[in-house]
Design a binder for these strands. Structure first.
Length: 876
RNA sequence: GGGCGGUUAGCUCAGUUGGCUAGAGCGCGUCUUUGACGUAGACGAGGUCACAGGUUCGACUCCUGUAUCGCCCACCA
């Protein structure tokens, strides 16, 4: 037997994936190389007769890491789209990637290095780069196996690593263009610097946390300033007061004595000083505070660096030299206290910048770095966004993004870590010796030193911010070039986490427009965070992390995918629990058993068929149940098509659950236990399997391979066309469903056990019941169904339009009287509400006619029902 | 301070131009060895749609306000 009594995903999944991969079906069918079939020199794909393309790039997971739950969601979403469009006949290109994860990987590597008793300073940059490369190569591969286990139908030959040559080439080309366009500049600015990791960060990488701190009041002569960082006073170059502040008006332009030193510093007027806060006077330290830096710019003040990159005091009186900032603060406070200059302290809560990786407090540090002037980039991006060239899901994120771009500051792209793409800039060694520029662009970053026009240049040691290269992702993955038309660019959709809207999506849009002149993708779908079952953020410290691979092993890949897609909508953080995966597993098993059952009917049927080979008969519908299921399946297909277009994954999955389980299995298949229509069973099963395949690729393929009549892979099947059926007959089946449900419900309500076995059904003068008596009997599990000849007897079922009785004894019926009375009351209330609505002249006048008519019909039905119920009560 | 989002059943969530008796999954209760499936089937209980106003014939849906939870950005000497 091919079909075991339950579906065991572990027995099928890896073989199925291997078969898919070996057959090459994940590769796109339309190439990126121009095609000129008719020799007219024009790429023929520009015309309409070629298949559609569908392209999507995977946000590259860390090359040497493992997949976490967010990746699981990413793959479930993206692969469902890709498989769906593949079934719809598009040339799909799902491009996998691997991220060198510059900083992340570096942190892990440096930790290893330190564990072995080494430090980064023992090696030069090239050596370190080579060592990390080997480290990553050793660890690599895990995540790729995990992507396969999740069923990702990506084109493995096209896997792009963020340090691949073509990526670096493209990044250098862009950088060169920007350099020539004057958009790159080297500036000494304050940067967020992590003293532990010895690198700077972009604003976006900084994590702000509220912390308790102290605000000290210090006397600078007669002016009291407030500060949370007394140790930086050695870097003070001014005291600022608000120009409107009357208290200090006549002091502006004068000087005060800087405590603990012999320096005089000026009192300046600047809006930055808030008269309401503290004493209204602020010390200005341009080298160690972002606001002060700007004040310094405005007033052309000196920048005195008093904290080194390793966090030690420099350029300070000898007493303080070499102390850590914490030690220095203590000493300064002590000395001020002794001199009577410390005038007060207050506990406050303020937000402090931390390294998002190690939690160390970031030190604003003066550094020479490469910056991208983002003004033009942001402006162009905003124009295209406002022009609606990219559709966002959820829609609201577009506004958020435009708002962000409107306030963007210049982008620091220098990082002081060796693991990354080297910045292709070289500076002159001997500045005096030539008129050549100080800095030159050159791609030969494998060299430390180059010579140009007889001048020696040395390479900048820094590497690019990863987001600078990542922002090229749609361009590099699709092999976009300046020369050729590329049918895969722009991407159809960019699917990624809402948390990197600014860091990644914003930059891809700016870079895509800058490099290609086009937006890099047509749609953006952003998913929220996967939270634990109680809506809490997953974290190692809380111990509530769910590993997707554990769930795949336990319940199967399909179960995981179905489970994580359910109840999820774009942009929303959503809780996730094992329960939803269990429910997915159950659906897979259900479908498996449906298929097993149908295969057994097909096997039986074959024996009875004549041996003469006649053309394969198409299916036809022969009764109401068959017409009905065709209608329901068609509705389901329509729903899925609409949902996929709008990225409503959960709704599509829901529609499939309901159709397969509540309709196909519970009603149609049950009815087929009496009337078998094997061609239709085959056709409908195929349809449902294909429709579910994007979401549950493995079980549908496993079934497809086990069925006796199907060919090829379901993964490359054709999306089903609508089924043919008789709509009037289909609607008729709804009556049967009402009759059966009412019968079942009444049997349960009668009290006692196993009533279904005890009481038969009687009908009077009802052709629908007469024509379908077998079906009604079997579905409602009554022992008999007969025409009532003569006086009605038993319990009349509460159906407005059908004369149907349960042949129960009087005693049982009497006990049911109360239930009937309750029912009359409740139907009565519904009737009152309907009547009220209809008695409102405004409703009758203004509501659409079909609604009014519907209300009238409902009233008729309810009235009839009440009459029947009352009649029954009296009869008892 | 600016912005965004949530508040619907015990839990997690749907509810798409305002219109059938507000739905699903899980959980809960009762019953059931039925031509596949107990990872199942049948039936059922459970909701003042956060609150207060407003618009409308009609509001979970639109508007205003309040409460509450959460996120993002900026600022915090």
């Amino acid at each position: 037997m091919k079909f075991a009594s339950s579906y065991e995903p572990g027995e099928y999944e890896s073989d199925i994936y291997a078969a898919w991969e070996a057959s090459g079906i994940f590769a796109p069918t339309v190439s990126t190389v121009p095609v000129d079939d008719d020799g007219n020199g024009v790429d023929d794909r520009l015309e309409e007769n070629h298949p559609d393309t569908y392209s999507i790039v995977m946000p590259p997971p860390n090359a040497n890491g493992n997949l976490h739950i967010g990746h699981g969601l990413t793959i479930a979403l993206e692969d469902s789209l890709v498989r769906y469009y593949r079934l719809r006949g598009a040339s799909t290109w799902y491009i996998p990637g691997a991220d060198h994860a510059g900083f992340e990987t570096w942190v892990v590597y440096e930790r290893n290095l330190e564990a072995q008793g080494h430090t980064r300073f023992e090696f030069d940059r090239n050596e370190l780069y080579a060592r990390v490369w080997d480290f990553v190569a050793e660890q690599r591969g895990n995540m790729e196996l995990q992507l396969r286990a999740l069923g990702a139908s990506c084109s493995w030959d096209d896997l792009t690593f963020t340090l691949d040559e073509n990526v670096i080439d493209r990044v250098y080309t862009t950088f060169e263009k920007m350099w020539n366009d004057g958009m790159i500049y080297r500036g000494e600015k304050l940067v967020n610097f992590c003293p532990k990791h010895q690198t700077a960060f972009a604003d976006i990488e900084v994590e702000h946390k509220d912390e308790k701190g102290t605000l000290w009041d210090i006397a600078y002569d007669d002016i009291i300033v407030s500060t949370t960082r007394p140790e930086t006073l050695f870097g003070d170059v001014a005291v600022a007061v608000n120009p409107e502040d009357k208290r200090y008006k006549d002091r502006i332009g004068k000087t005060v004595h800087l405590p603990l030193t012999d320096r005089e510093i000026p009192i300046i007027a600047d809006e930055h000083a808030d008269p309401e806060y503290g004493t209204g006077a602020v010390k200005i330290t341009p080298a160690h505070d972002f606001d002060d830096f700007e004040v310094g710019e405005r007033h052309n003040l000196e920048r005195i660096q008093v904290i080194s990159e390793s966090g030690k005091m420099i350029n300070v009186p000898e007493k303080y030299y070499g102390l850590t900032t914490a030690e220095c603060r203590k000493q300064v406070l002590k000395d001020l206290e002794e001199q009577g200059l410390l005038r007060g302290e207050k506990k406050i809560v303020h937000s402090v910048a931390h390294c998002y990786k190690c939690g160390t407090v970031l030190e604003p540090t003066l550094k020479e770095q490469w910056f991208v002037d983002v003004e033009k980039l942001a402006k162009v991006a905003i124009e295209h966004l406002e022009n609606d060239e990219i559709k966002f899901h959820p829609e609201s994120k577009k506004k958020v993004l435009i708002n962000y771009l409107g306030n963007l500051k210049d982008w620091n792209i220098s990082r002081q870590i060796p693991w990354g793409i080297a910045i292709p800039m070289f500076h002159q060694v001997d500045y005096e010796s030539s008129d050549e520029p100080d800095w030159v662009f050159d791609r030969r970053t494998n060299l430390k030193e180059i010579e140009k026009a007889g001048v020696r240049y040395v390479r900048d040691e820094d590497t690019f911010d990863t987001w600078f290269s990542s922002s090229h992702w749609p361009i590099v993955c699709t092999d976009w070039t300046e020369e050729n038309f590329n049918p895969y660019y722009p991407l159809n959709v960019m699917e990624t986490g809402a948390d990197i809207l600014f860091a990644w999506v914003a930059r891809m849009i700016m870079m895509g427009l800058y490099v290609t002149g086009e937006v890099p993708f047509k749609d953006v779908y952003l998913h929220g965070l996967v939270l634990d079952a109680h809506g809490q953020k997953m974290s190692k410290s809380k111990g509530n992390v769910i590993n997707p691979m554990d769930l795949v092993t336990k319940y199967g890949s399909d179960a995981f995918r179905l489970g994580i897609l359910r109840g999820r909508s774009a942009g929303m953080n959503q809780a996730f629990s094992e329960n939803s995966v269990i429910s997915g597993r159950n659906l897979c098993n259900k479908l498996w058993n449906i298929s097993r059952f149908i295969q057994s009917l097909v096997d039986e049927d074959r024996g009875e068929e004549s041996e003469v080979s006649i053309p394969k008969p198409d299916y036809t519908t022969e009764n109401m149940g068959e017409d009905w299921i065709c209608r329901e399946i068609n509705d389901c297909l329509e729903q899925i098509e609409k949902d996929m277009k709008n990225y409503r994954f959960a709704e599509a999955v829901d529609a499939l659950y309901q159709t397969i389980w509540d309709k196909y299995a519970d009603w149609f298949l049950e009815s087929q236990k009496i009337y078998k229509n094997v061609p239709l069973l085959k056709k409908t099963l195929e349809t449902l399997l294909i429709a579910l395949h994007p979401f549950a690729p493995f079980v549908t393929e496993a079934i497809w391979q086990n069925l006796s009549w199907t060919d090829g892979f379901i993964a490359t099947a054709k999306w089903p066309a609508r089924l043919k059926y008789d709509p009037i007959s289909a609607e008729g089946f709804e009556n049967i469903r009402i009759i059966v449900s009412e019968t079942r419900g009444t049997l349960q309500a009668l009290g006692g056990t196993n009533n279904g076995k005890k009481y038969g059904l009687l009908y009077d003068n009802d052709s629908l019941v007469q024509d379908n008596q077998m079906l009604i009997k079997v579905l409602s599990k009554v022992p008999t169904i007969n025409s009532l000849n003569g006086t009605p007897r038993g319990l009349r079922l509460a159906l407005a339009n059908h004369e149907l009785y349960l042949d129960a004894p009087e005693k049982v019926i009497k006990e049911y009287k109360e239930t009937l009375t309750d029912r009359v009351l409740s139907v009565g209330r519904e009737l009152d509400a309907l009547n009220l609505r209809l008695r409102n002249p405004n409703y009758v006048e203004k509501a659409p006619a079909h609604l009014v008519k519907e209300t009238q019909n409902q009233i008729k039905e309810k009235e009839k029902l009440i009459a029947h119920l009352k009649q029954q009560i009296e009869y008892i």
